[in-house]
């Protein structure tokens, strides 16, 4: 009944000018039992394609959970925070120490200054004494 049609399709099939739908028709046709003898030699080819499509990938793929990389990044962040913390903490401490030393020096210097002031006052007395002494010398 449709031999002619099938034969034409086959011819075009081997020239690779059939569409996917037409090839589907051929595959469907060749799964039937009542194939005329002169077409029967093509049957295994089409049956094989149908069988080949049934093959499945059954192996389980061990997908690693992605959290692992999160842990990695978290550890990197923690380490960097730690390093920066130590660095800034130390510089802060250094600053405080420097300020303390500055205050101490200032105190010491001001102490020195007051004592020096006392000294100069005394020297002023001394000068007065010297002047009067000089006057007395000049008179004589």
């Amino acid at each position: 009944m449709e031999f002619n049609n099938i034969e034409k399709l086959l011819e075009r099939y081997f020239e690779a000018t059939t569409t996917v739908a037409e090839e589907e028709m051929l595959r469907a046709y060749f799964t039937r039992e009542d194939i005329p003898p002169h077409l029967k030699r093509h049957a295994p080819m089409f049956q094989y394609f149908s069988v080949a499509k049934e093959e499945r990938f059954t192996k389980q793929v061990p997908l690693k959970p992605r959290n692992k990389s999160y842990i990695k990044w978290i550890s990197v962040a923690a380490v960097s925070v730690l390093v920066f913390g130590i660095y800034f903490g130390r510089s802060y401490q250094e600053q405080r120490e420097a300020e303390y030393a500055y205050q101490e020096t200032k105190k010491a210097l001001s102490l020195l200054a007051t004592n020096l002031g006392k000294g100069t006052e005394k020297v002023a007395y001394l000068r007065e004494f010297e002047e009067t002494k000089q006057k007395i010398y000049n008179k004589n």
Partner: peptide, 17 residues
Amino acid sequence: VRVALSRARKTVREKLV
């Protein structure tokens, strides 16, 4: 692609025969 496909199909047919 068409040429390669046609060749492949014909080869399979011939060898099968």
